[in-house]
Each structure stands twice: as structure tokens, then as C-alpha cells.
Design a protein around this nucleic acid. Structure first.
Lengths: 145, 145
DNA sequence: AGAATACCAAGCGAAATGGTTGGGATTAAA
DNA sequence: TTTAATCCCAACCATTTCGCTTGGTATTCT
């Protein structure tokens, strides 16, 4: 039950933008280079994050992307849900209108609900600011990238 | 981040076998019919569960499968890990020997660890017996299938 | 003998994944 | 005013994974 690269790269990119929050627009190329990702592919992910309101962009030379809100106001859950969809282990426990037959007597469904809820609790409780704080804990010599 | 049908069908099958624990071998056809799954496909999953020691089988007419242990001694985690592999959101937090560069300074990894651990806690704490108990809670008229 | 079962390996179409390609529009700087 | 940097967009593509199906063989009960 892995995340796809969408969620993983997306979080990396948002983290990288959080590091430079308040510095004006950061070009995608910088982010892709730092995190060692394909710029063209990352573009697709970032485009979705912008449309969903997590990022602002500035076009043209010296342009780039920046967080639309402070790092403490963006959670990992915000990012992952946009790029990966509901963090649900089965379709029957998504927000959507999917339904399986015999819903009431389905005991496995109760298991999927517990898994989903525990994931939600984790990802909704971690903000980009938390990640920035963690970064400084990690190593006094953490390079400012 | 959905489970595949392997994990979902596998848990359904194991639950069905738990319902009939102590009644001798249950043919795969019964299980497939009850849970509305392809018998041939289910066979592949069940075969793995047997090789990993969760099931015993009896060949020939009147044969079938049965749990190798009491329902209270088999967890959802046992089943899902066999059929889905590690319940880790990213390769870098599996039990395997995968490693990414810049491991020490990778803040996103700490996020994946928290997600993984919270999933583990849920699936390792639910046994098949818990599911049987839940079933009886659900409805006084729960049919014995 | 015949039917019911487990066991096994290979194949296979459809979908998802993880990109790449090729452009266009906008803007700052030279 | 040109040029380079950048965002923006849509289409395409190779590979892998998924969710089975097919076609058998071996075993055991009746």
C-alpha cells in the first residue's frame, strides 16, 4: 500500500517551498534540482496544487511558485489528499458515493475505517512548519538549501 | 493509497474461514460464493496464505481449507502483510534494505514513518476473533453464513 | 470409477504509473 | 525591443501492475 510518486514528490516540493517561505517566487527548476526530481513531471503536480489553492505562481522571468499560506497552515493531509485522493485503503470508505452490497453486515469495512482514520489523524496533525522544526532538530549543521 | 484486491479479498476469505473455525475443511468454492469472489483468483491468494502458515489444507473430495490457529491468534496485520507486503507508504520505510540518498536529512521520511507506525498499530491490534465479535454486535439477526 | 477438491504455472487485456515531448504565453532584464 | 526565463497546457508513450482466466495435474472421498 505505497503512495505514488505524486504524493511523495509533492510533499518534497511543498517542503522545499516552505523552507523558502517569504522569499518571493521560487522557480520550479530550483526545487526539482534540490530534490532531484524531473522538472517536467513535477510541473504537473505543482499545477494541481496551485489550482487547489495551496500555491501561488508568478509567470515570466524571475517567476516561480510560493506557498499561498504560512507553513503552519498547510498540513501533510492537505497535500496528500490533493495529489493522491482520499487516504482510504478501500473504495467503500472514501468520501465518494461508492457503495458495496451487504454494506451493513460487512465486518471488513470496520477494519478499513480504522485504518483510514488512523492515517487521517497522522497526516492532519503534521504541518509544514512541524517539518521545518524537525529539520532543525535533525542536525545543527543542516544545510540551508 | 488503496489496498489491492489481494489484501481485501484475502481478509474476507480469512474472516469467512474464522466463522467456520473448528468445523473441519471448508472448500474454497463455498468461500468464493459467500463473499462473491472469483474462485480461481482467490485460490492464488489462499495458496500464499497456506505457504506462510496461516492456513491448513485437505486435498481431495470433502477437502478444503481451515485456519491453522484460533481466530484470536491471527491478526489483520498477519494477513495483510503476507498479501500486500509491508504496509509502508514509501519504500524507504520498509523492512527491506532499500535506501535513498541523503537519508539523514530527509524530513519527509519522518512523515512516512509516522504513517506506517499508525497503520501497524491498527492492523496488529485487530484479530479475526475481534471481527467475529463485531459481527455479533452488528445485528442480532446476523445470518450465520 | 467418478466426482470433488487442492495445487500449479502460464497467459492476458486493461488500467495505472511515471514520466517525456512539444509547444505556447507572460514577464523581467539586457 | 529583443531575449531568456519561467509558468502553463495537452498530448503521447513505454513499462509495470492488476485482476483475473485458462488449462491443466494430483489427491482423496464416495
Amino acid at each position: 500500500m505505497r503512495l505514488s510518486t505524486r504524493g511523495r514528490y509533492g510533499l518534497k516540493a511543498m517542503y522545499q517551498l516552505a523552507i523558502h517561505y517569504g522569499e518571493g517566487p521560487i522557480p520550479l527548476k530550483n526545487i526539482a534540482d534540490k530534490q532531484n526530481l524531473s522538472e517536467n513531471y513535477l510541473e504537473q503536480l505543482v499545477s494541481v496544487l496551485r489550482k487547489e489553492g495551496l500555491l501561488n505562481s508568478v509567470r515570466g522571468a524571475q517567476g516561480g511558485y510560493m506557498l499561498s499560506k504560512a507553513p503552519m497552515d498547510i498540513t501533510v493531509g492537505d497535500i496528500l489528499r490533493i495529489l493522491e485522493g482520499d487516504m482510504a485503503p478501500a473504495d467503500c470508505v472514501t468520501d465518494g458515493d461508492f457503495e458495496c452490497e451487504n454494506e451493513e453486515n460487512c465486518v471488513t469495512k470496520t477494519v478499513w475505517i480504522k485504518i483510514r482514520d488512523s492515517i487521517d489523524e497522522v497526516i492532519d496533525s503534521i504541518t509544514l512548519q512541524d517539518m521545518l522544526d524537525k529539520r532543525q532538530e535533525n542536525d545543527e549543521n543542516t544545510p540551508v538549501d
